[in-house]
Computed example of a mutant assay.
Amino acid sequence: MNFEGICAIARRVGWGAANILVEQSRNFEVEKSGDSPVTSADIAANSYILEKLQSVFDPQTFGYLSEETYQSEPAEVRLSRSWVWIIDPLDGTKDFINRTGEYALHIALAYQGRPVVAIVACPAVGKLYSATLNGGTWVETQNGDRHPVKASDKSNFEDLTVVASRSHRDVRFNQLMEQFPVKQQRQIGSVGCKIAAIVEQQADLYLSLSGKSAAKDWDFAAPELILTEAGGQFTYFDQSPVQYNRQDVSQWGGILASNGKIHRQLCETATDLVAKIDQ
């Protein structure tokens, strides 16, 4: 597989979907409300991404795991494929609805459960991040400017900034953050925008801790590769790699994303604190 060629196609698809989200942000319908809302923008962007990708990447070879359609597709199909596209057409729907601008779209190609090509677009600020396995991470704007990005080299707890959600916080997560040694905090919506902040050196650390529900594959697959190819690390709290395209698409437990400089210490600290919280 030519990852650079695949990435070029995914970048074009990403820009097309980003333009749809920007247009829809002016006038959209909320199709489903609640904790996991769905808008007409989610549906429109999802249809566009699937149509464009499937016209190039044969569904007989490539599986497709998308937030908006996975429940209507037999899991056996994607589980039988080594190559699977993992798609979130609108990451941060609540932020989209509230017009904070902190929403993103994710497109990742995974091989045997690990991402090898990734796109994270932040439409409201006109940026698209792309990465290929061993090819680095790049940011571009629609006028053609494109350059590599790297996570920070900060390596002291007191110098780090953690990026967190405004809304996806339960009691356990709040307890974890209260006791965590990294005290500087930025609040940003959507995982894609959080990871963008880390590779732009505006933050250094992100934590996810499942509660009654958990983040899903499409929340993390693309952001992971964007971060790791920019020098960061993205693992479960036990430092094992995150696995995608399993029967259960929920990512239970703790996940930590960092600039990579003291990742082990951060993971060990998070593990110890969660164990005390759960006692």
Rank of each mutant, 00 (worst) to 15 (best):
A275T: 10
K216G: 12
R172D: 04
K216E: 14
I107Y: 08
Q187V: 12
W83H: 14
E158V: 12
G253F: 08
S47H: 15
K261H: 08
F234T: 01
V199W: 04
S210E: 07
N2V: 01
V162H: 05
Y48E: 07
Q179F: 06
D145W: 12
S155C: 15
L266R: 02
N46M: 04
S250A: 04
E229Q: 11
S33I: 01
G113F: 01
I20P: 00
I9M: 04
L105C: 04
A118K: 00
L227M: 08
T271F: 01
E140Y: 03
E229D: 00
R81E: 05
D58M: 05
W83Y: 15
C122Y: 03
T228Y: 04
W83N: 15
Y70E: 05
T271I: 09
P59K: 04
N259F: 00
F173A: 08
T269M: 10
V242W: 02
S36L: 13
D159Q: 14
A118T: 04
L65W: 07
F157H: 12
S165F: 10
T61H: 13
Q247H: 12
G135N: 02
I87H: 10
R172Q: 08
E51T: 15
R172S: 08
R246T: 15
T61E: 14
K212Y: 04
N156W: 10
I277L: 03
S152C: 14
A75R: 11
V77D: 13
Q175F: 15
E224R: 11
F180G: 02
I119V: 06
P181V: 08
R172P: 03
K216I: 13
V13D: 01
N143F: 08
Q201G: 13
Q185P: 12
A222F: 02
D159M: 14
A118F: 03
S258L: 05
G136M: 03
K261D: 07
Y103W: 13
M177H: 13
